[in-house]
Write a protein that binds this DNA or RNA. Structure first.
Lengths: 354, 354
DNA sequence: ACACTGTGCGGAAACGTTTACAGTCCCGAA
DNA sequence: TTCGGGACTGTAAACGTTTCCGCACAGTGT
């Protein structure tokens, strides 16, 4: 005989639905139906369940995914999964995802544009059902890659208003750094500060640019002159923040410093203390992001909360909603900033535990 | 005709290898071979590549996984993916995994035993190729679940020495809290401290128990008496650490406090300062884990590094090695602790940036 | 007695790959 | 001329599910 039609026997390896079916003396279809809770006669049900239990059957998720065309997995891509802001975001996303029965995959992009684009294009491999990405810079390459992504993507961070007339709706969660900076500046001004320094991150990043614009506008709103000598560039990390602040202190005589994130602010705090000045008195300090660091610093750090956890939660929920209803119109939600005043710009040396 | 043998046409959806093959006028086998770099004639190669490019073909990873019986994905399960210790670990693991072409999936277990066991059993679903898990408590349920896990698992944290004669080798990466505590105590004693308090985490956790044992043994080694009044239980978080330290200060007169992790230590730092005492002079403070927090605290915090990042890196490497060679003998590696002395137990108020 | 409906079941297709196997073709050697 | 072998190619099986469809059978109403 030319056709050697060999009966699939699945000896060896882990039990499959076919093992269970054979043992129960029913067809694969029936076994599958029972296992998925679709109808079957009481007798069939009993035999299949018994067989499944006796061999310790566990369905293969990959095979199921192939058939169902979904993986029940989401991905998160951020520059650095160790940055407290992203940690807060990730934690919120993981929680929402897990509650909805999704697993979360994380990617550290290192702010590499090519890598981020590659990741977006990789979605076509269909290994995840959707992605939350928070690029620190958003380039045209991102936009076109977003446009061709075959899978829902939620962008955390500000997408340009003039998204290229896109077939695909991209949900967007944004912080409002601009307003947040305004809150901080007003607070400082109301506390009697006039020479308000600003240690920012790189201007070519989304948050860096937004925060600078916020600083300029807030000064104007408060009727303060803009003095370039009070502005010091850095990047978003501790060491850079500390070095930049030292330069700033040497050069100008700020009575307050706004820092573009908490890592910078902690660096600034150390620089100010090293210079022999009193934080909160000689120099008021305000950070941004209100990460755990702000509470743990000493003196505790005033900080503008941009709602990282909240943004993560929203991003995850938007993603799930879109998976449930792919054609809904693109959402854009903005999380309102709040100012948390602590000792670094206030009176009490340390706050009591509530 | 009864057999309506309908030719698979794959219209609609994303292009598959079959689309490419049809367009190139070759069989799907040839198309697949070209795309995977196995041999083909120059002409076939050209046509397939052209077809693939023209339809923008991207292979489906799920289907590939089903066939290859591997997903190129690893998982990490820790109690809280926001805890700085685990963040450092996760970052290291993600890096090693990514470099090896694996993706990383994260799970927050909330220290729930049932959840952790469920996760271990879930490995039978074959959705990941391997798992790194760091249970904060290790129960018998864990051990049996580990034994039946069909997929390699690396445990970060101390497995019992008498692992049940198991068919399956479990690799194990451990910190050496015991020695680490010893380093801290010796350092404090050498600095002239005698009444060394201890704020620990829960005793029924692996690290809590190890650190307590280390404390007792270190006192003995240094010839100091054990005074229960100097020991205060807490859990591994900031608020608990702060509250516990306040109680300790009210009750005893410690001239130094060892804290079971950095979160507790920062709480202790705030409690000491609130009590109007000088950290590093009236009371020396040492934390554990040497997370970023230690450097960012003020005064900067001495801390015993237990090598979280290093443990993560090792765990990932062990996992990859086992995937490459499933039958190798079980490895057990221990990371040596180091003490990082900073201002909270030393002289300089703040360390210069190197 | 007959048509009709509904329930349960099994065969087989489908998801998209990779690869074992067997066949075709061509070329050079005997 | 024939044969062996190498290089390519295509058919089909396999990975493990879910589900469509047709069939058998029992029960109900006329």
């Amino acid at each position: 005989m030319s056709r050697k039609r060999l009966q699939r026997t699945d000896s060896g390896g882990p039990p499959t639905v076919r093992t269970v079916a054979a043992m129960a003396g029913v067809s694969i279809a029936s076994a599958s139906r029972v296992l998925n809770g679709h109808g079957a006669s009481a007798e069939t049900e009993r035999r299949v369940r018994e067989a499944a239990a006796s061999v310790g059957y566990v369905p293969n998720a990959v095979a199921r995914s192939l058939q169902a065309q979904r993986t029940d997995m989401l991905a998160l891509a951020v520059e650095d999964i160790g940055n407290p802001v992203y940690v807060a975001m990730m934690r919120a996303i993981e929680e929402v995802a897990a509650d909805a029965g999704y697993r979360l995959q994380v990617h550290a992009t290192g702010a590499d544009v090519a890598g981020e684009v590659e990741l977006l294009d990789g979605l076509a491999r269909r290994y995840v059902d959707g992605l939350v990405i928070s690029p620190i810079r958003i380039t045209d390459a991102h936009l076109t890659a977003l446009g061709r992504a075959p899978t829902p993507v939620v962008v955390v961070g500000s997408l340009p208003d003039d998204m290229p007339a896109t077939k695909k709706p991209i949900d967007n969660v944004r912080a409002d750094s601009h307003t947040g900076v305004g809150l901080a500046i007003r607070h400082l001004v109301e506390s009697g500060r006039r020479r308000i320094g600003f240690v920012n991150g790189p201007l070519d990043t989304v948050p860096g640019a937004a925060r600078r614009a916020g600083y300029l506008d807030a000064l104007e709103a408060e009727g303060l002159p803009f003095d370039p000598v009070l502005v010091e560039p850095a990047d978003f990390h501790y060491a850079a923040g500390r070095a930049a602040t030292r330069r700033l202190l040497d050069r100008a005589e700020p009575d307050a410093i706004l820092c573009a994130n908490d890592l910078i602010a902690v660096g600034a705090l150390h620089a100010v203390l090293s210079a022999g000045k009193r934080v909160g008195e000689d120099v008021a300090l305000v950070g941004m992001d209100d990460t755990d660091l702000a509470e743990m610093a000493f003196p505790q750090l005033s900080s503008v909360s941009l709602g990282s956890a909240e943004r993560g939660r929203l991003a995850a929920e938007l993603l799930l909603a879109r998976l449930a209803e792919p054609t809904r119109p693109a959402q854009r939600v903005t999380v309102a900033p709040t100012l948390v005043v602590r000792a670094s710009s206030g009176r009490t040396a340390i706050q009591e535990i509530p």
